[in-house]
């Protein structure tokens, strides 16, 4: 198990280093001068040159890379051009909002996608399977921005069931005391249940927007994994021995299908974390995606670079976690990699 763990840690670290290199190079290739962007159109060439020197942009690329990596090791992602604040501060301050939304979106996706996938697999070829597949096609083909607009119009503007897209809490309501930065959780931890209730209300529509789309991916993966295991030898054998169908479904099929399902969940969660830029903008959700969107508009390459790196690291961490869970679910993996 330790060897398995060390190997995964090593692979993850190499991937992070590669990611940092790619992000660094891509930002340098993109058109744009951080010094000119920070000083604005009225800046003199002398001022721009002075700032370039101060930021180290006049140094050879290899020196810049060294400085960048050294900064990363010390948690320094540079300064945001648009605000002058440290990039790490800008992004980590928004990370809890993004995680809270992504977790809620994932829960919606699982609550809808998992049972529907199970249902579709257990009733393959019947009407309920067809309905689930239609839902999957609709879910995967509908753009989050469109779905979000529909939900805002229907559930806020017309039905007045959910609140408007003004962020995480009602206008003027102070957030709960900061513990994790996730308002639902912080409200519970500090006994501020009013804040938790409001945070849940304001979370509902963006989470539904994200989760409904993602539920289609979960549904398809659960369905196909369950069907694949249903056709395997051990299931046929269990049936031949007269084991009840429900027991086969939950104990044998589901556990064996979980490897694929877990991979799908990891991917979906990664997508929800990094792919919610538009949803955050639509709902004025103060997460990292919205910061990245604004950074695009203000040519803030430092901020974009930090965003890409943090999202990439989160993806890698998720993959690492999924790898570890593989080992828990399937002992053959941690005992020598006979299965993959």
């Amino acid at each position: 198990m330790i060897r398995y763990l060390l190997r995964r840690v090593g692979i993850s670290l190499i991937t992070v280093a590669g990611l940092a290199l790619v992000v660094f190079l891509v930002v340098r290739i993109l058109p744009g001068d951080a010094a000119a962007a920070r000083l604005g159109p009225e800046a003199s060439p002398e001022d721009i040159e002075a700032l370039r020197a101060k930021l180290g942009l006049d140094q050879p690329l290899i020196v810049q890379l060294g400085d960048y990596l050294w900064g990363l090791l010390h948690g320094d992602l540079g300064l945001a051009v648009s605000t002058g604040r440290p990039v790490a501060d800008e992004l980590f301050a928004r990370l809890p909002a993004t995680i809270e939304l992504a977790v809620a979106g994932l829960l919606v996706a699982l609550v809808i996608g998992f049972p529907l996938g199970m249902l579709a697999a257990s009733r393959r070829g019947r009407a309920s399977d067809a309905i689930a597949r239609v839902f999957a096609v609709l879910g995967s083909s509908m753009a989050p921005v469109w779905l979000g607009l529909l939900l805002i119009f229907g559930l806020y503007s017309v039905a007045r069931i959910f609140p408007g897209p003004v962020g995480r809490l009602p206008i003027g309501m102070p957030p709960p005391e900061h513990i994790t930065g996730m308002y639902v959780l912080d409200g519970l931890l500090t006994g501020n249940f009013a804040a938790t209730g409001e945070a849940l209300r304001y979370l509902a529509l963006p989470a539904l927007t994200l989760g409904l789309g993602a539920s289609a991916a979960v549904l398809k993966m659960v369905r196909s994994a369950m069907i694949a295991t249903a056709e395997s030898g051990f299931v046929r054998t269990a049936r031949a021995y007269g084991v009840p169908g429900r027991e086969i479904l939950w104990r044998d099929q589901l556990r064996n299908a979980m490897l694929q399902v877990l991979t799908a969940i990891g991917l979906v969660f990664g997508f929800l974390l990094g792919g919610n830029v538009i949803v955050e903008r639509l709902f004025s959700w103060p997460g990292m995606g919205r910061v990245a969107y604004d950074a695009l508009g203000s040519n803030d390459l430092e901020l974009l670079q930090g965003y890409a790196l943090i999202i990439g690291v989160i993806y890698i961490a998720l993959n690492f976690a999924v790898d570890l869970l593989y080992g828990v679910i399937d002992p053959r993996i941690r005992l020598g990699g006979r299965s993959s």
Binding site: L149, I152, Y156, S157, G164, P165, V166, G167, I171, G172, R281, L282, F283, S284, R290, Y293, D294
Partner: peptide, 14 residues
């Protein structure tokens, strides 16, 4: 209070 609502259409709804 200046509320930052990035999407203009949502601003109109509010």
């Amino acid at each position: 209070t200046i509320q930052f609502v990035s999407d203009p259409a949502q601003r109109a709804l509010l």
